[in-house]
Amino acid sequence: MRSLFISLRSEFYKSRKGLAFWAAILLPVLICGLIAFGYFNSSERILRNNMPPMGLWGQYSSQALAVMGMLILPFYVIFMAFSVNNIEHKNDTWKTLFSLPLQKLSVYSAKFFYSVLLVLICLALFMGLTYLFAHLLHLLIPAYRFDLYDPSLLLFQYYLKLFLSAMGILSFQFVLSLMWGDFLKPMGLGFVGTIAGIICANVQWKWAYLIPFSHPTLAMRMGKLRKSPADGIDIMTQEIWTSLAYMVVFFILGYFILAKKNIK
């Protein structure tokens, strides 16, 4: 456990100046900021629709959720999984990590959990900033009645679902990035997979839930899975279970690949 903790601290220390870490912070700030700016700038047009507070919240928060769920999250996860492993490939430091008195499982798990943590930070910031910027908009333009409805539960559930739906892609990409040090293979496969996943989910192919790259799109589908807003949404749907199952399988597979890895 101590090995895992120090490895995790080291992961943070190594990547704290890198793009993968800062993207987890800058992406939500930028996207939520742009959406809020759009709402500020186009307030007259938006307010003309006379939406009730709940509808306004729905419209406003789905901007970030849709962009994030459909495109940014899969691409960010692919890039981040690549980045966390590439730091060792690029600097030829696997040999250092494995010649230190640390369990290989701890080194591996720390990398994996660090990646999970970055997705969590990114999505938590998306959720928090969506909420904060809405109230800021209300302060600047009081006609935006974001104060009359509390979407915290729904926002939390949607972002939690989005987070869980990303675990399949993350673990799959993590294994690819572990095996290959080059940029093209894991990133190329990831991009093709993401596009194929989005298409499969959007055409409602019945086996789409088996494709990790379809999970965020499937998870963001509203409608039939949704109960009343007060009850929240079903989080543990078929694609989420599949995503978690992939995470377990790829996590174990990745460890065996790493444990047998000879540093030539």
């Binding site: 190594k14 100046k17 890198g18 690029k90 600097n91 030829d92 430091t93 040999k95 250092t96 010649s99």
Partner: peptide, 10 residues
């Protein structure tokens, strides 16, 4: 071992 394994960005 071989070339020193160091993190170039640090």
């Amino acid at each position: 071992v071989e070339q020193p394994a160091i993190y170039g960005h640090m």
